[in-house]
């Protein structure tokens, strides 16, 4: 019962954040320069009649509050508005390009987490000091290197020199490998640091001494005891990882010439196609909230101490 209340509270907090985020996005739209009507007309014909028609069609003559409520209602119903530039529903534009971006994001996040786990477990404790030094140096490099540089390096070595992978495009799984690795490396670098830190701290705890005094192997100590404790701080980074992955896809898609949301938002920004920009931004905020709430719930699952209050 108490656990249920804890779950409800976290979901409620997520919804609240979502609402504030949507409002912030709406305020950004109001702050956008230039006249909305001008933006919609773009290079098209500009007569007073057309202007009046646009104002009527988009409901721009209504009070700000009504427009805001209308915006929220449409948002809840999944209506993201119409693109000024393409004159099509934004949801269609995004829908077409969502899949390749999603594939890249999921592949990169999965690979990053997996790499981080392997590295952290292999280097935790003080068993192999040289390996530990090597891996923390590499992690620092990965975290500090712009993802486009990683991408270009991988491209110039693996595609141009050895021709292992296609240079660009979205044909087949082969084309996904390099972009996913590019994006996964910085994530792995940071998560590995956090996980290893957590493992090291856990290993210093008395309960690990107790476990060792039972005759448990070092691997058992790490996997059965320390890893759960190390996962807690890592799980709380889930939202942050989501942000990095989403931001990263924009850059990586550009580097590898992949289609996806990155291309959509870049061209929208260049043309000040605000509905599209806002839709992508709001969607990613929603994604962040979902991921973060899921992480909070996972926290409850891992740590029984939190289920109480």
């Amino acid at each position: 019962m108490r656990a249920l209340r804890a779950v409800a509270r976290r979901i409620g907090a997520g919804l609240l954040v979502l609402w504030v985020a949507a409002t912030a996005a709406y305020l950004a739209l109001l702050a956008a320069p230039g006249d909305t009507v001008d933006n919609i007309i773009g290079d098209g014909a500009d007569t007073p009649d057309i202007r009046a028609e646009i104002i009527a069609q988009w409901g721009l003559d209504r009070p700000a509050v009504v427009q805001y409520v209308d915006y929220l209602v449409r948002l809840v119903n999944g209506d993201l508005g119409r693109s000024y530039l393409l004159q099509r529903p934004v949801s269609d534009v995004i829908g077409e390009q969502l899949l390749p971006t999603l594939a890249l994001a999921v592949a990169a996040a999965g690979l990053g987490v997996l790499l981080a786990l392997v590295i952290a477990v292999a280097t935790a404790g003080n068993r192999r000091p040289w390996l530990r030094r090597l891996s923390s140096g590499t992690e620092l490099l990965l975290v500090s290197t712009p993802s486009f540089l990683i991408g270009l390096l991988l491209l110039s070595v693996l595609s141009f020199r050895f021709r292992f992978f296609p240079v660009s495009g979205d044909q087949g799984a082969g084309a996904l490998v390099l972009p996913a690795v590019t994006l996964a490396l910085p994530i792995a670098g940071l998560l590995a640091q956090v996980l290893r830190d957590g493992l090291d701290r856990a290993i210093d705890q008395p309960f690990v001494l107790t476990a060792r005094s039972r005759g448990v192997r070092e691997r058992g100590v790490l996997l059965r005891h320390a890893l759960r404790h190390a996962l807690l701080p890592a799980v709380s980074l889930a939202g942050w990882v989501f942000g990095i992955v989403i931001g990263g896809t924009v850059i990586v898609e550009q580097v590898f010439g992949r289609p996806g949301l990155g291309q959509v938002i870049l061209s929208a920004v260049a043309n000040q196609d605000m509905p599209v920009v806002l839709a992508v931004v709001t969607l990613s905020a929603a994604g962040y909230v979902v991921v973060n709430t899921a992480a909070d719930l996972a926290y409850l699952l891992v740590d029984p101490r939190l289920r109480r209050s």
Binding site: Q205, P206, F207, L209, T210, A211, R224, H225, R228, H229, V302, D303, P304, R305
Partner: peptide
């Protein structure tokens, strides 16, 4: 409290 694994 700290000598038994709090997560198990």
């Amino acid at each position: 409290l700290v000598s038994l694994d709090p997560l198990r």
